[in-house]
Design a protein around this nucleic acid. Structure first.
Length: 354
DNA sequence: TATCGGCCTAATGT
DNA sequence: AACATTAGGCCGA
């Protein structure tokens, strides 16, 4: 089935479910645009009713999805590229999407492996199809997850988007896909040098970042001071030297990269592990968050405190991480992303353990 | 080396 | 209606 203005590739929902992946707390900068009329109907939103948009480098990428197809198109700041060049641009967008969603990884075979090794997973796996790890920009990921501490997904999303609106010039504006009267503006993620300036802490605090405001400014300043801001000249998108240095951590070992990340203010073990998994290719890393603790105590034989709430200690973190790694194996971090749907399901269907 | 109180804020629970 | 707890924790003592 064709969609006017969009390119497409065949891609089954079991490999990628945008609605699940883009809301599961990995990335906080996507616009998820729906048509009000059909939102009330509990029937699954299809490619005609929901569009996902992200400002990616020099363009806004728009995505829609049907059960077997991914639709994509790119919008540029005016003037739009000539139609002779448009094909090349869409080709580039597709390459970026393959990289961002790591489409070379076969999720179905991973699910099969996890289900084979893990009764809990096999029991629930049909219920959370298409949930995979994104390969995000390390700098954006670092700041986003500093925001995540002691926080919830909806607030983190507001904070990250507010930060982009405050500190980046708009890339472009375009109309809402389902209500053309509404104009939406898209902002890139601001570079380290912008967030390193000293008044940023105060401003972010005023924007509701709480105690994380200073962590962000200080982390940005540490990066800029240590690795500089030189960047190749580019009209709409550039990458500063410290961002490039950060991205180079992908080439280091997990332990080395983690050690570097832990030096930043506002980055502890859990946040470092999120960054390793979601932007630095460390597919085996399991960030142990409150949801993972709940699952570990509920389904995998960890004993919580008698009063219901277990408080985290470095030792407990290590124990849970090690245990789940031994169950899920090489792609353990990928397996762990289903924790939120798993938890909501196991409320309905309790009574499972290894 | 381990533990503990404090920290911003908004939403939900008691 | 106040008050406590929770949400993808981290820092400093």
């Amino acid at each position: 089935m064709a969609l006017p203005g969009f390119k497409s590739i065949p891609l089954p929902l079991v490999q990628l479910s945008l609605s699940a992946v883009l809301k599961c707390g990995q990335s906080f900068r996507w616009s998820i645009l729906t048509s009000e009329a059909t939102q009330e109907n509990s029937s699954e939103p299809s490619h005609t009713h929901i569009e996902y948009r992200l400002c990616l480098k020099d363009r806004v990428v728009c995505l829609r999805q049907s059960p077997d197809t991914l639709f994509y198109r790119s919008v540029f700041p005016d003037p739009q590229p000539l139609s002779t060049n448009l094909l090349e641009h869409e080709k580039e967008t597709l390459e970026w999407l393959k990289d961002y969603f790591q489409l070379n990884i076969d999720l179905v075979s991973l699910y099969k492996q996890w289900g084979h090794k893990d009764k809990v997973f096999s029991k629930f796996q049909e219920r959370f199809e298409g949930i995979r790890i994104l390969r995000q920009d390390p700098w954006e990921n670092l700041i986003s997850f500093i925001c995540s501490s002691n926080n919830n997904i909806s607030r983190i999303t507001k904070m990250v988007q507010g930060l982009c609106r405050e500190y980046s010039p708009p890339l472009l504006s375009m109309e809402h896909p389902f209500s053309p009267k509404e104009t939406l503006t898209y902002y890139p993620f601001p570079p380290p040098s912008t967030l390193a300036a000293s008044p940023v802490g105060l401003k972010l605090r005023a924007l509701g970042f709480g105690y994380r405001a200073d962590f962000i400014q200080k982390t940005a300043k540490m990066l800029v001071d240590a690795h500089g801001i030189d960047a190749p000249i580019s009209p709409h998108h550039s990458t500063e030297a410290s961002e490039i240095w950060l991205a180079q951590l992908r080439k280091r070992s997990t332990a080395d990269a983690r050690q570097e990340l832990l030096k930043f203010v506002g980055v502890g073990r859990k946040v470092a592990d999120c960054i390793l998994l979601m932007s630095m290719d460390k597919k085996e890393v399991i960030p142990v968050d409150t949801h993972v603790i709940q699952i570990a105590t509920k389904h995998y034989g960890f004993k919580g405190s008698t009063s219901g709430k277990t408080n985290m200690t470095p030792k407990l973190y290590e124990e849970i991480s090690t245990k789940l790694s031994s169950i899920w194996g090489e792609y353990a971090g990928w397996a762990h992303t289903v924790r939120i749907p798993l938890l909501s399901l196991s409320v309905i269907i309790p009574n499972l353990s290894l």
